[in-house]
């Protein structure tokens, strides 16, 4: 009997596919998310929109918050550690968390190195803006990938940019003759073996969710139609005026993402979406997606 194998790490992400992972900051939020049909929750002290507002250094959440949320629900619970902060990751593993998000939403702890994720039994999800970044993270042991988008904005434009970038680069690799793959790996700054694998299979070796800016059922379905395996919703639910109803609607839109009639129906009477801020209005030094490499 073997635990912590690559297959069970990647496998849990496969079980999350077609689902919505919701940011929650209290056990009550977690219960609302579970009741709405979330396939997992992300336990946090503050949602990204509030992290943005608060400024300062954003760190791993207090274990008390995380444990209370783990007790409140029966679905998988994820939590975030800072980029490169492998001790925060060790702590999260010791708490028995189901997935660790090494996240640009928190203030990076290491500007050169991400966590060496192969050392852990618990699986990791990491953000990416393009295929090269995704493959570097997978090379370090990430068993799941998500687009970074721009967290806490409610603006979907960056998530779309990042998802399209990943998909375009995959299509390009598939068409490329084998003898050009090494130069392409150099260009992407990605491990050659993974580049060669995608050339053959036409897909990432791990699940890829969309994140960073999803605020409406239509946003979720947009990301699914663009090729996401599922969606993370951070501030989009609990910063809206009616979280329970919006959460349920986003879950339905993610399942029925090809059925515009159902998306239209579930989009009715949801109340106000999160206030949101256009990514264009944010000074470049305050953008989160640029954290990590």
């Amino acid at each position: 009997m073997q635990t912590g194998t690559w297959k069970v790490k990647v496998g849990l992400a496969q079980m999350l596919k077609g689902g919505v992972i919701m940011d929650v900051v209290t056990p009550e939020h977690a219960k609302i998310a579970e009741a709405a049909g979330a396939c997992a929750v992300m336990a946090l002290e503050r949602v990204p929109a509030d992290i943005r507002k608060a400024g300062g250094v954003a760190r791993m959440s207090d274990p008390t918050v995380i444990e209370a949320i783990m007790k409140a629900v029966s679905i998988p619970v994820m939590a975030k550690c800072r980029i490169g902060h492998f001790v925060e990751a060790q702590v999260l593993q010791a708490l028995g968390i189901d997935y660790i998000d090494e996240s640009e939403v928190l203030t990076p702890a290491d500007e050169a190195h991400h966590v060496w994720k192969h050392d852990f039994k618990v699986p990791f999800v990491c953000g990416c803006r393009n295929l090269g970044e995704a493959l570097r993270r997978i090379g370090e042991g990430a068993a799941m990938i998500r687009t970074k988008g721009e967290a806490g904005t409610g603006d979907i434009v960056e998530a779309v940019r990042h998802m399209r970038a990943v998909q375009d680069e995959i299509r390009k690799l598939v068409k490329m003759p084998e003898n050009e793959l090494m130069a392409e790996a150099k260009e992407l700054q990605a491990p050659f073996e993974l580049v060669a694998e995608i050339h053959k299979t036409g897909k990432l070796p791990v699940v890829n969710f969309a994140a960073g800016g999803v605020a409406t059922p239509a946003d979720a379905a947009l990301m699914m139609q663009l090729g996401a395996d599922g969606v993370f919703v951070g501030s989009g639910i609990f910063k809206s005026s009616n979280p329970a109803v919006r959460a349920k609607a986003i879950v339905q839109a993610t399942t029925h993402y090809q059925d515009a009639k159902i998306i239209a129906r579930v989009s009715k009477n949801l109340g106000e979406a999160m206030p949101g801020m256009s990514v264009k209005q944010i000074p470049p030094e305050e953008l989160l997606a640029g954290r990590g490499w």
Partner: peptide, 28 residues
């Protein structure tokens, strides 16, 4: 069987499928 860290792989004996063990992947 517990949380994700307890997810496991093991070989299973499933007589109706023949003698060869079956790869059992158990996730939560």
């Amino acid at each position: 069987f517990g949380r994700q860290v307890d997810s496991f792989e093991t070989e299973l004996s499933i007589p109706v499928l023949g003698k060869k063990p079956f790869p059992g992947v158990f996730i939560r």
